[in-house]
Design a protein around this nucleic acid. Structure first.
Lengths: 137, 137
DNA sequence: GTAATCCCTACTAAATTGATAGGAATAATA
DNA sequence: TATTATTCCTATCAATTTAGTAGGGATTAC
C-alpha cells in the first residue's frame, strides 16, 4: 500500500509545480486545496526539502518551491524519499540491499527472481515519469 | 514491502511444486527445509487451501498438494490471496476499488495516473508468471 | 486406540502509520 | 522595534498491521 505520506507528498509536489509563480507556495494553501492535514503536510514537505527536492523560504511570505524544473524531477527520487525502497523486498533493492537471513543462495530463490522482475518494471515507470508528467506542466 | 506471509507462502508453493510425488507435502517438512516457523506456516497454507490454490489431506500421512499444474497457477491469483490487492492504492484497484474521500475527480489526480501505470506493469509481470516459472518445473 | 497431521481460535509484542500539540526560529513589514 | 506569518523541530499518541506463539479439536492411517 502507498502510504498517506507519499500520496500527500505527490499531491503537494504537483500543486507546487502547477503554482509556478514568483513567490513560494505555503503549506496552508496546499493543505486547504488538497484536503491534507496541515501539520502532517508540514512534516512531509520538510522531508522533501531535506532531501533536496524542495527549497524553502522562512518567515512571512515564506513557503516552498521546486529546486529543479518539473521535467527534471524523477519519480525514482521522489518515491525513494517519500516511500522508501522501490523494491518489495530488501534482497532485490538497489539502494538498500540486505541479505535474507533465511536464504542460503538467493540466485536460487523463487521469490527473489519474481521480485527482481517487479522491481525492474516499477523502476522503468518511475524512471520515465517526471513531475512534469504528473502535473501536466 | 512484501510481507513475510507472502514470502513464506511463495516459498512453500515452490517447495510443493518441486516435491511432485504421490503423497502430499507436510507442513513440518516445508517449515524445516525453508526455515519458516511452523505454526506461522500452518496458517498461511490454510489460507492458500481456502482460496482453492492448495488442496489438503488430513490425518496421518496428510499434507498439502497443488490443485492445478504449476504452469496453471498464476501469480496474480497467488499474490491476491497472500498479499491482497496488487494496486498500491484502492482507487486504481481492479478487484478492491475504493474512491479516495479527498479526491473530487480521480481522472485529474496525479497520483492516480502514476499508480495506474505501476499497477499495469506489475499486473503484466504477475499475469505472465506461473508457479512453474518460479519453481523451474 | 494411538500417533500424526491438518484445522481453528485466541492471544501477544513490536513496529508502523497517521496523525496532533506546542513552541522555537526566522523573516517581512508597519 | 513590535507584530505577524511562516517554516522548523521534537515529542507524543491511538489505531492498525505484522509476525509470531499457544493450545487444543478434528480427522485419518495404521
Amino acid at each position: 500500500m502507498l502510504s498517506k505520506k507519499t500520496k500527500y507528498g505527490l499531491k503537494a509536489l504537483t500543486f507546487i509545480a502547477r503554482s509556478e509563480g514568483d513567490s513560494p507556495v505555503q503549506v496552508g494553501e496546499i493543505a486547504k486545496s488538497e484536503q491534507i492535514p496541515q501539520k502532517f503536510l508540514e512534516g512531509i514537505l520538510l522531508t522533501l526539502r531535506k532531501s533536496g527536492i524542495l527549497g524553502s523560504k522562512k518567515g512571512k511570505h515564506g513557503g516552498y518551491y521546486l529546486r529543479q524544473e518539473p521535467s527534471e524531477i524523477k519519480m525514482t527520487d521522489v518515491m525513494r524519499v517519500l516511500e522508501g525502497p522501490i523494491a518489495m523486498i530488501p534482497c532485490v533493492s538497489l539502494n538498500y540491499y540486505e541479505k535474507c537471513y533465511d536464504c542460503p543462495d538467493e540466485h536460487q530463490c523463487s521469490v527473489h527472481k519474481l521480485m527482481i522482475e517487479v522491481r525492474d518494471n516499477t523502476l522503468q515507470v518511475f524512471r520515465n515519469t517526471t513531475l512534469a508528467d504528473l502535473s501536466g506542466v
